[in-house]
């Protein structure tokens, strides 16, 4: 199955990642109190659960855009040169069921 077969442009999680990239203050809040940031978005229960569980496979199955998946992984696991390697490995492990 292709990465975009389930793509659902209506997922609120897409806006979450966009806002986190564009708003440093929101990023700080996300790191300190993730739940309060998630509360701001109309996430479906399964969508929120997938984010909280760092379950990218589930998130993709719901229709999350994979490029934003890579960016969400960096927001969670690290966004500098080495942090990105960690984020990639965590993401791939989740997608392949090896996490």
């Amino acid at each position: 199955m292709g990465l975009f077969d389930n793509f659902d442009p209506t997922l609120a999680a897409h806006d979450l990642v966009q806002d986190l990239k564009w708003d440093p203050e929101l990023r700080r809040r996300f790191q300190q109190d993730e739940g309060s940031v998630l509360d701001r978005y109309a996430l479906r229960p399964a969508e929120r659960e997938a984010i909280e569980q760092r379950d990218f496979r589930k998130l993709y199955d719901l229709g999350f855009h994979p490029y934003l998946g890579g960016q969400l992984a960096r927001l969670i696991y690290g966004n500098d040169v080495d942090g990105a390697i960690r984020a990639v490995n965590k993401l791939v492990a989740s997608l392949t069921g090896k996490s």
């Binding site: 994979p66 890579g70 990639v88 791939v92 392949t96």
Partner: peptide
């Protein structure tokens, strides 16, 4: 390349 995918590498 496949950014964000299971074939990232």
């Amino acid at each position: 390349h496949e950014p964000g995918g299971s074939r990232y590498y």
